[in-house]
Simulated assay, not measured.
Amino acid sequence: MKQQNWLDTDSLRGSDFSMSSAFPALMRKVFVWMTLALAITGITAYGVASTPSLIMAILGNKALFWGLIIAELVLVFSVSGAINRLSLSTATLLFVLYSVVNGATLSVIFLAFSMTAIVKTFLITAGTFGVMALVGYTTKTDLTSMGKLLFMALLGLIIATVVNMFVRSSGFDLILSYVGVLIFVGLTAYDTQKIKQMCQLAPDAGEHMQKLALLGALSLYLDFINLFLYLLRIFGNNKE
Rank of each mutant, 00 (worst) to 15 (best):
L75G: 07
A49P: 03
L59I: 04
G60V: 02
I55V: 05
G47P: 02
A49W: 04
G42L: 10
A71P: 00
A63N: 08
A49S: 11
G60I: 00
M56G: 07
T51L: 10
L75R: 05
S53C: 04
K62E: 15
T44A: 13
A57W: 07
E72C: 08
P52F: 02
G60F: 01
I40D: 08
L64M: 05
A71L: 13
W66I: 08
I40F: 14
E72W: 08
M56N: 15
I55G: 00
A37L: 09
G60L: 01
F65V: 03
I43A: 15
V74F: 13
I70Y: 15
I43K: 06
L64E: 03
A49L: 00
W66F: 15
E72P: 02
L59F: 00
I40E: 10
I55W: 00
A63K: 14
I69V: 15
A37M: 12
I58C: 03
T41P: 01
V76R: 08
A45E: 06
W66M: 15
W66N: 14
I43D: 06
L38G: 02
I69D: 10
V74S: 10
S53M: 09
L36Q: 10
K62N: 13
T44C: 06
G67D: 13
V76F: 14
W66V: 07
L73K: 08
S53R: 06
L68I: 10
S50M: 09
I69H: 14
Y46H: 12
W66L: 11
T41L: 12
A57S: 06
G67K: 11
V48E: 04
S53Y: 11
L54V: 05
L54R: 02
L68A: 11
A37R: 03
S50T: 10
L75C: 09
A71G: 03
T51N: 13
N61T: 14
P52M: 00
E72D: 11
A39D: 09
G60H: 03
I58E: 00
I70M: 12
L59A: 04
L75V: 11
I40R: 05
F65Q: 03
L73Q: 13
F65P: 01
L54C: 03
G42T: 15
L64H: 02
T44E: 13
A45M: 08
T41A: 13
A37I: 04
V76S: 12
L75T: 06
T51I: 07
L54D: 03
S53W: 14
Y46S: 07
L59W: 02
I70C: 08
I40A: 14
G42Y: 15
T44H: 10
T41W: 07
L75E: 09
G67M: 09
P52Y: 02
S53E: 15
P52G: 01
A63Y: 11
A39G: 07
N61L: 03
A37P: 02
N61I: 06
E72S: 11
A37Y: 09
A49K: 03
K62G: 12
E72F: 07
G67L: 12
I43Y: 11
Y46M: 09
V48I: 12
G42R: 12
V76K: 06
L68M: 13
A37T: 10
Y46I: 05
S53I: 12
A71H: 04
A63D: 08
V48N: 04
L36G: 09
A45R: 05
A57L: 10
E72N: 14
A45Y: 08
